[in-house]
């Protein structure tokens, strides 16, 4: 039996607005094998991003437990969560979320800065990652000077900076044309297949979901 890298137990996320409250996640449980590829699908507003925030240690559930690499992080402090995000998780967002006034290389270096890795190593690693993603000519460009596909590849390089076990991607191809999206998916698939990274990905595209070993369908905060 493969080892769980991630396990969710009865996850609830409830937002309170004074008198009323809104339950966005209503008792979600599932587990993810190490090195597998899991797709999350569902209509808009169903809670996919909210769920991904729990998985990525960006947020904690109102109720329930989140195990990452065997540790329950649902009651972790902010700084402990930051540590998990920095070391165990790599995020890829739909809107790229790059620093506009930093160059490609500086963007990739940023997560390593927060982990206090030595400067020489940081630069070396950032260049290796950018080279491997075919961005050797873009190292000193700023995001505004790059295409969507290039920006997303920089974001992927940044997600890999601290060599995390899990890559969490929220509609990574959502802002790209289908051709570019395909290339980005190839990159992510390669990382999953060849480097053994666990890939958890939200998508609206059934063709992408087909590539995954497991697809979780969410509707109205529940697994279907």
């Amino acid at each position: 039996m493969a080892e769980d890298i991630l396990r969710l137990e009865d996850i609830w996320k409830i937002y309170e607005f004074g008198q009323t409250s809104l339950a966005v996640l209503k008792g979600i449980s599932f587990s993810v094998d190490k090195g597998s590829f899991v797709a999350i699908m569902g209509p808009s507003g169903s809670g996919k991003s909210t769920l991904l925030h729990m998985i990525g240690a960006l947020d904690t559930p109102t109720k329930g437990k989140v195990y990452i690499a065997g540790k329950d992080i649902s009651r972790y402090s902010e700084d402990e969560l930051a540590g998990i995000r920095g070391k165990n998780i790599g995020f890829v967002f739909q809107q790229f979320n790059l620093f506009p006034n930093l160059t490609a290389q500086e963007n990739v270096i940023l997560p390593m800065v927060f982990q206090k890795s030595p400067e020489k190593e940081r630069v070396k690693r950032a260049r290796e990652l950018l080279f491997s993603l075919g961005l050797e000519d873009r190292i000193h460009h700023r995001p505004a000077e790059l295409s969507g596909g290039e920006k997303q590849r920089i974001a992927i390089a940044r997600a890999l900076a601290n060599d995390p076990e899990i890559i969490v991607a929220d509609e990574p191809t959502g802002n790209l044309d289908s051709e570019t999206g395909k290339k980005i998916m190839e990159v992510l698939r390669t990382l999953n297949k060849e480097e053994g990274k666990t890939l958890i990905l939200v998508t609206h595209d059934p063709n992408i979901a087909k590539l995954a070993e497991k697809t979780i369908h969410i509707k109205d905060g529940k697994i279907q």
Partner: peptide, 16 residues
């Protein structure tokens, strides 16, 4: 604000 969110997402602690 957005940059603060990005820094936190890539592992920045509050002190940083």
């Amino acid at each position: 604000i957005k940059e603060i969110g990005i820094m936190k997402a890539v592992g920045a602690k509050n002190k940083a």
